[in-house]
């Protein structure tokens, strides 16, 4: 296992995550894509810590705290969505246009 392989693998995961977050309209798919970015960063941290520095206390602490907090944030978002979607809306878990909407209506319209 060398450092180039770790960097390429994490970069690939990062790109998949970015593409998925921007392309998909479903909240579930967006969250899975966000997990890909998170995993890419975790692979970087642990890989670099193991190969380059030998000791990994700081990296592991950072990874633990950050991952717990980001998971908490995502859990809160999903919990809010699940607990409050009212029966009249059937497509509550899908955004019509992905995470960002590049239409002119949102920009210049009402």
């Amino acid at each position: 296992m060398n450092i180039t392989f770790i960097f390429l693998a994490s970069s690939l995961l990062f790109l998949i995550g970015v593409f998925g977050s921007l392309f998909f309209g479903s909240v579930t798919k967006i969250i899975i894509s966000l997990q890909c970015i998170l995993t890419a960063a975790v692979i970087n941290f642990l890989g670099f810590a193991q190969i380059l520095y030998g000791t990994s206390v700081w990296a592991v602490t950072f990874v633990l705290i950050s991952v717990i907090l980001i998971f908490l944030f995502q859990f809160m978002i999903v919990f809010y969505l699940n607990s409050n979607t009212y029966q009249y809306q059937s497509d509550g878990f899908d955004f019509s246009s992905g995470l960002y909407y590049f239409g002119i209506k949102d920009w210049l319209g009402e």
Partner: peptide
């Protein structure tokens, strides 16, 4: 955007 920051910090560490 937060995950972008997290990923960038991981690269900084590398």
């Amino acid at each position: 955007s937060l995950l972008f920051i997290f990923f960038a910090i991981s690269l900084l560490y590398g």
